[in-house]
């Protein structure tokens, strides 16, 4: 279950009810930031949060995202090298 999608907090709309405007690819929706408030609400502006049913449920950890992507990129490059080697071997055989 549980559709969740990254959205950027772009403005605080109602501090008394802990509401902010989130932007998902140009689509805006007011969401509650109650679950992710740790300091001042203004600090949330610009951050990416995981949005679920109108709530910002988690702030995306940029370092962790970068780490995961780095590992995936490494795999991708290794794969390319392997494929290039296989191509090279095939070309040699053909000669």
């Amino acid at each position: 279950m549980c559709l969740g999608i990254p959205g950027q907090i772009v403005a605080i709309t109602d501090e008394s009810r802990m509401m902010a405007m989130a932007d998902v690819s140009g689509v805006r929706r007011e969401v509650s930031y109650a679950p992710v408030l740790t300091g001042s609400p203004a600090d949330l502006i610009g951050k990416f949060a995981l949005i679920h049913v109108g709530f910002a449920m988690a702030i995306i950890d940029e370092d962790e995202a970068a780490k995961t992507l780095e590992a995936l990129r490494g795999l991708g490059e290794a794969q390319e090298t392997l494929e290039a080697m296989a191509e090279g071997a095939k070309a040699l055989e053909a000669q």
Binding site: L3, I5, V24, S25, G26, V27, R29, I51
Partner: peptide, 11 residues
């Protein structure tokens, strides 16, 4: 597909 259409669909 425009980004906004994708965004609407993802939400």
């Amino acid at each position: 597909l425009r980004p906004e259409v994708k965004g609407t669909c993802e939400i």
